[in-house]
Computed example of a mutant assay.
Amino acid sequence: MRLDDLDPSSNVRDLGQGGGGGGGLNLLGFLPLLLGRGLGCGTIGVIAVIAIAFMMFSGGGGLLTGGSQAPTTQQGSAQGNVPCDTAEELFACRVLASTEQVWGQIFQQQGQRYPAPTLNFYQRGAQSGCGAAQSAMGPFYCPPDRGVYLDTSFFRELSQKFGARGDFAQAYVVAHEVGHHIQNLTGQAEAVSRAQQTLPKAQGNAQSVRLELQADCYAGVWGKRSGRMEPGDLQEGLTAAEAIGDDTLQGSSASPETFTHGTSAQRAYWLKRGYDTGDPAQCDTFSGAI
């Protein structure tokens, strides 16, 4: 991706190792699993389906619509740490800046202002507005503080463990979590949470799948409209999407009713659909088959 000429976003914080920030709900430390264990690597976030309603209506629910006011967060340094000061962080900061440009334009075309999320870097552990953050969770989005949380060591894991190499594979990580921020602003995340309270577990999981696939599609929309893609970038993203499908991660023990993020084929399809169309209106994963 061509990002070198782009100033990094200022909506970033570096929480350091076990850093502060966020605070807030701390509901047993597992609420960061909400809206997916990020991209779905590692342990499948079955707990998320159980926890979603608990979180949304135990203090965070009112923050899930675009008109709600998120808690104020201080941008820049935290505990003496400087954000965007490593190659991995600088890359992610520039990706975030590009998402701000793209989604800002999309919202402006609809007569709305785009409130950007905050990208929070941390190492190994930190506190988020949803409770404890740990590297093993992977990247995630926390609705109450409108924060994306990322330990950049995940980029190495994505490359080395899952064979998803390249800069767009890493950009996809950030753009997917920003996709969850869009769902937070539009109210789609809240709609899913409400539906899941009355659905059987398997059907609730299916709603989570649709939410994750839509975030993949939004990541593709950003890639297309960013104007910064280079030959081979899309394939890098598709490889990453395929590597972290539920069926691939679960292997021979795959059980569709437990899927919470979508199959490899579904994730690649919706990422590419977003890229091919460049239109968020084409990311409706809640109508018809997926």
Results as ranks from 00 to 15, higher is better:
284 D>Y: 04
11 N>I: 03
226 S>C: 06
18 G>Y: 10
185 L>M: 09
107 F>G: 03
169 A>L: 01
227 G>K: 05
95 V>E: 08
282 Q>R: 11
69 Q>I: 14
153 S>L: 07
157 E>L: 12
255 S>R: 14
239 T>K: 12
142 C>A: 10
169 A>M: 01
85 D>C: 04
206 A>K: 07
58 S>M: 12
247 D>C: 05
58 S>P: 05
80 G>V: 03
114 Y>S: 09
110 Q>D: 07
100 E>W: 11
112 Q>D: 00
221 V>Q: 08
115 P>W: 05
138 G>P: 03
56 M>E: 11
51 A>W: 04
250 Q>Y: 05
49 V>A: 09
263 T>C: 13
247 D>R: 07
136 A>C: 13
172 Y>W: 10
40 G>I: 04
177 E>D: 06
217 C>H: 03
55 M>W: 01
169 A>Q: 02
118 T>S: 11
85 D>T: 10
183 Q>F: 04
95 V>C: 04
87 A>I: 11
50 I>H: 14
99 T>D: 15
45 G>I: 00
210 R>D: 00
229 M>P: 04
89 E>M: 05
1 M>L: 14
78 A>F: 11
175 A>Q: 07
188 Q>N: 05
119 L>C: 03
91 F>Y: 09
203 Q>P: 00
88 E>Y: 08
96 L>W: 03
153 S>T: 06
50 I>G: 01
216 D>R: 09
229 M>E: 14
5 D>M: 09
70 A>R: 14
30 F>L: 13
23 G>Q: 13
108 Q>G: 10
20 G>E: 15
127 Q>T: 14
153 S>K: 11
167 D>T: 04
119 L>V: 00
148 V>G: 00
57 F>N: 02
94 R>N: 03
27 L>N: 12
60 G>F: 06
127 Q>H: 10
25 L>T: 10
150 L>G: 01
212 E>W: 02
162 F>R: 01
36 G>T: 00
130 C>K: 14
230 E>G: 09
14 D>F: 08
275 Y>V: 10
232 G>L: 08
128 S>M: 08
204 G>T: 02
62 G>I: 05
166 G>S: 05
67 G>A: 15
181 H>R: 06
63 L>M: 02
249 L>W: 09
267 R>C: 01
135 S>C: 02
73 T>K: 12
224 K>D: 13
33 L>T: 00
154 F>Y: 14
262 G>P: 03
228 R>P: 12
143 P>T: 09
189 A>R: 05
174 V>N: 00
72 T>H: 12
263 T>F: 06
280 P>S: 08
1 M>E: 11
99 T>S: 15
267 R>H: 08
137 M>Q: 13
79 Q>G: 15
251 G>I: 12
161 K>C: 00
205 N>R: 04
232 G>K: 01
159 S>P: 01
177 E>Q: 11
98 S>A: 15
175 A>S: 11
99 T>L: 15
57 F>K: 04
196 Q>A: 07
167 D>Y: 07
129 G>C: 14
271 L>K: 03
39 L>M: 12
215 A>P: 03
274 G>E: 10
271 L>V: 06
49 V>D: 07
225 R>V: 08
221 V>I: 09
104 G>Y: 11
68 S>E: 05
262 G>S: 13
235 Q>D: 15
97 A>Q: 08
49 V>Q: 09
165 R>G: 04
168 F>T: 10
133 A>F: 10
284 D>R: 08
89 E>Q: 14
75 Q>E: 10
123 Q>R: 15
66 G>E: 12
142 C>T: 06
231 P>Y: 06
234 L>Y: 08
